[in-house]
């Protein structure tokens, strides 16, 4: 069917007009596709170039010794032992604090909280917190954790700071994940006589877990590269010893002394090496960057795997 307006003059030119219109739309379509591909290529190329350069500069430095040596003034014997141990311990504290708090807050806001002014204010604040520059968290933590709570410049203070930093991310991810669960599931469970907690623990948490875990890991992947708040609370540049081991002696199984130990983390070690006069340290910085990037990538890979693995188990 040819619309009247087009076919008014003659049906032949009308068909040609439509063909032209279609051709033009197809060209636009194709152009947009090209634009999108170019944008994607540009983004990927920038990353690939950065990664490639880091790989070329850093890969020769990667050796067993690089992971098991302390920092040194000699580039050849300098390693990242205290940095990667520090990063992992800080991340551990961050995860232990931020995950239960964030998931709890998310569930409360979605399932329990009544819609009123207070909840609205909390919601707006949580969303805004996600956009606060990380240095602000560092300043808050310096006053609160380091001085007020007397934690000093320790792993615990750093872990708590980064936990605050990623808390909004975890809360928002939890809420988004919970919202994807169809209302019928809740109603079905209530209809069978479940209490609210039973609905949450039997249905809401398991079904939203893939989404939540993804959010948690994206949050942690952000925290692992953070430098500003960690510098603010006083991470050290040269530290050639490890925190006390959590499993130091047989009688007392787990010790928490390491929580209060001074520390350094990967981004700070990198930053220090980059600002050194000797060129050999630039290669070390590239290698440390490579390790940090691999840490982040493997966390993201874990997030993808968890999402895939848990989703398979959900049978609605």
């Amino acid at each position: 069917m040819i619309p009247k307006s087009l076919g008014a003059s003659s049906s032949a030119s009308g068909v040609a007009g439509i063909r032209r219109l279609i051709a033009r739309h197809k060209t636009l379509d194709w152009l947009f596709g090209l634009l999108g591909t170019l944008a994607l290529l540009l983004a990927t190329l920038v990353f690939a170039a950065l990664f490639g350069q880091m790989l070329i500069n850093g890969a020769p430095q990667l050796s067993w010794e690089f992971f098991t040596s302390f920092p040194s003034r000699r580039a050849a014997s300098a390693g990242i032992l205290s940095a990667w141990v520090g990063t992992i311990l800080v991340m551990l504290v961050t995860a232990v604090v931020a995950v239960p708090l964030g998931i709890g807050a998310g569930i409360y806001l979605e399932e329990y909280a009544r819609k009123n002014l207070l909840t609205d204010i909390i919601e707006i604040n949580v969303t805004n917190l996600a956009g606060v520059p990380s240095i602000i968290y560092g300043l808050l933590a310096l006053g609160l954790f380091v001085y007020q709570f007397g934690l000093g410049q320790s792993i615990a203070a750093a872990g708590l700071t980064l936990a605050l930093l990623i808390l909004p991310v975890v809360i928002v991810a939890t809420r988004e994940a919970i919202r994807t669960i169809p209302q019928n599931i809740r109603e079905g469970a209530y209809a069978c006589g479940s209490s609210k907690w039973q609905v949450v623990s039997h249905h809401i948490i398991p079904y939203s877990l893939p989404g939540i875990m993804t959010g948690v890991i994206i949050g942690l992947a952000r925290a692992i590269g953070e430098t500003a708040p960690i510098i603010t609370i006083g991470a050290l540049t040269f530290i050639a010893f490890l925190p006390p081991s959590p499993f130091s002696n047989a009688e007392q199984l787990i010790s928490f002394e390491w929580l209060l130990a001074p520390f350094t983390v990967m981004p700070i070690q990198m930053f220090n090496w980059i600002s050194r006069p000797e060129e050999a340290f630039q290669a070390n910085a590239a290698a440390a960057g490579l390790v940090l990037l691999l840490m982040t990538l493997s966390m993201n890979a874990l997030a993808i795997w968890i999402r895939y693995h848990f989703r398979k188990k959900i049978k609605w």
């Binding site: 991470a235 040269f238 530290i239 050639a240 001074p262 600002s275």
Partner: peptide, 28 residues
């Protein structure tokens, strides 16, 4: 940060010499 390289070098050698009996941290 100007003095850092000197103190860092001393701290490195000191920790080696004391074999971990004393730890030194140097910040910038």
């Amino acid at each position: 940060s100007t003095v850092f390289p000197i103190t860092e070098a001393v701290a490195e050698e000191f920790q080696k010499a004391r074999k971990g009996a004393t730890n030194v941290t140097v910040g910038i």
